[in-house]
Design a protein around this nucleic acid. Structure first.
Lengths: 217, 217, 217, 217
DNA sequence: AATGAATGAGCCTTCATTCAT
DNA sequence: TATGAATGAAGGCTCATTCAT
């Protein structure tokens, strides 16, 4: 029953509209990979389309054949990272049967993803805040916002089964959880906290926080 | 016993070196106020020293009389915001006598500060991640990191009194808490969650998460 | 006797080298038509070969199968327009038997052509001045220059018959006339001057200007 | 009575809003002079702001301190040229007492101006047609249009005195005249027609064209 | 201390043209 | 013959910083 993804949200259509193949698709892949490397290493503002093209081994102009502008390229990078992480979470949470299992699975997924793609999460979250909104500025939700909404849904479902204290304002809790995960996780990476230690502590922290009080409170 | 500040940070010296007065101090004040307004409204990268000077009503060149560069100005803004928030927290936490009271006080302070200075926290946290590190890049800790360390100390103190589950990896918990506060708070502001609702939920959430398990677990 | 074309000039050979037919000719036609539409609507500098190809419904590369470069395409457009206008003039002037009739016919032709192909004349004349000359820059005469030379010849012929004041410097008059026609015509189009009004006034204006003075002068 | 300027029209205010002096004014002058040289020599599209700055002996950025963009700089060049020519015409027409004198004066002024500033008129007229209209595109009248309107006013005044055939559509005539002057003048410059010859012919041409028919026609 | 004109490296983007398929 | 992905020189413009006054 509890086997939904960590965050996400229906933006997939945009990314996957069509998966072209052949030479053009190849170029796009190289650009996107290069973009990821550079956005992660230098951040949005210190990465030029020119650098991405060079790193991708294509001409400067090719960049604009695949992305309307730098911003669109970054957004594509973010979408892709989000989708990958969603898959990771889906995988690790697949056979979770308890709240505890679900949370532990999610945390494990975040760590696993981050081990495979170091820095990607941070780059996506941090720069998203800062790529000066285009025309449709307000429409754009941060990754953290999307995750927050995802967790809110999950929490509400689980609360219906009596596994979460029903006195909570669910939306607040739903957004608090990705916040705590992200920040604790960032610290763990920076300070080399062993993965298991962090996951154990956080799982217990969240589970206890959510559990309905057993006795009078 | 529990009455320390939320976050802190020893950077005050830089800002407060001496509090000069007179014309020079006046100019600096105006610049700093203007900088705050603009950094909050447009973000670091979309605010030019020229804009700040103009908004402050001083000549373009005056900016560099008071700040070594744009980065230094932003850092001064962040330091000031942090210090103000610390004072707010100190104030609201002054007569807390319980863990619950301390947490509630902290949360109340964050909301109160944010009501007085809308957007300041977000600007300080978000852009801090993104102002391409100077030579000493790594030395610079994010506000969130500073707060995380502050909470870690606090948690450890409190744990010594038996109020916090001693099985936790304290540093992880210490960093998780500002993360959850920040994110839940951002959501509350964006979605107009009533302050009291958010504070209540978060206080209970955190308190329960920290409490040592009473029975066997 | 007076039934020569308005302007013209021997560039036709280039355009009409051979009139190939079949697939290749078809592509060229579509490109030329598209080019005309776009040059007229957006001007030379704001029309890209890519736009022309797209509008023509052929591949980007096909453009260079038919034109050496963008400049050559524009020149082909201009040649074609000139030739069309020449035909129009020939038609309207065919049975003119007097100076008055010839002038009136020419003016009628210009208006008729412009009604059929709005903006074409303007685009051809205006941009011609501005398509940065290739190697043979100076050799290229503006449409206006060609017309001026054409009129000069005509005027000289007519003067031989005593219909034009022989004291004029014919070349000056020959170039003045297309200048006045073009400009008055542009105004008529922009300000919706009725065709007949404009033609009447201009015919009288030119005829009187040319007529030898009857009395002592 | 007939001593008005050739073309013109009230745009002066924009140009002359304030005549600042000092270093800034000096820079603007140098830029404007350089711009004129380059626009005349290479045309609008083949002149880069960078080139203008270099020719003016100032930094690249200085250009944008004085002109919003390249287009604005060109417009300033055009305004200035127009104003200069107006003054030239005013000067040469100052003591004209007849229609003949007025026309001759105007023509002399155009030749004199062009001798002093070769190519300026052509650059201003030709490129004006081609600097892809900004937002207010349609509002912008070509120099030729402005002159045409000026002549129209003049012609109407003179017609009131019975010096011009009242059957003409004055606006058409008003626009025809600058057209004929410009084109004949261009030819004269290109083909080295002696100034006096051209002026004589054109004066007679225009005067006769305008004169009311004395006898039945 | 204050000013604001000046600077120029650097940024994002375009587009005429080429070339492998 | 036709295609359209690829190219990279070049363009217009910005902006953090300096410096003469």
């Amino acid at each position: 029953m509890i086997r939904e993804r960590f965050g996400n949200g229906g933006d997939m259509e945009k990314t996957l509209e069509r998966k072209p193949q052949g030479r053009k698709a190849e170029s796009r892949r190289r650009l996107l990979d290069a973009a990821r490397r550079l956005f992660v290493e230098h951040g949005y503002h210190d990465t030029r389309p020119q650098d991405i093209s060079k790193e991708a081994g294509v001409g400067h102009g090719t960049f604009y054949l695949h992305f309307e502008d730098k911003r669109a390229c970054f957004l594509a990078f973010v979408d892709e990272a989000r989708e990958e992480l969603n898959q990771e979470v889906d995988h690790y949470v697949a056979d979770a049967t308890s709240l505890d299992g679900f949370i532990r699975g999610t945390l494990t997924a975040v760590f696993a993803y981050s081990a495979k793609h170091p820095g990607v999460l941070r780059a996506a979250v941090a720069d998203m805040e800062v790529i000066g909104g285009g025309p449709e500025a307000d429409l754009e939700e941060t990754i953290m916002d999307v995750w927050g909404d995802g967790w809110t849904e999950r929490i509400i479902e689980v609360a219906a089964d009596g596994l979460v204290d029903s006195d909570f304002h669910m939306q607040t809790v739903g957004h608090a959880i990705p916040g705590l995960i992200y920040q604790a996780f960032r610290n763990a990476v920076r300070r080399n906290v062993p993965e298991e230690t962090a996951i154990d502590t956080l799982t217990r922290f969240i589970v206890r926080a959510l559990q309905p009080q057993r006795n009078t409170d």
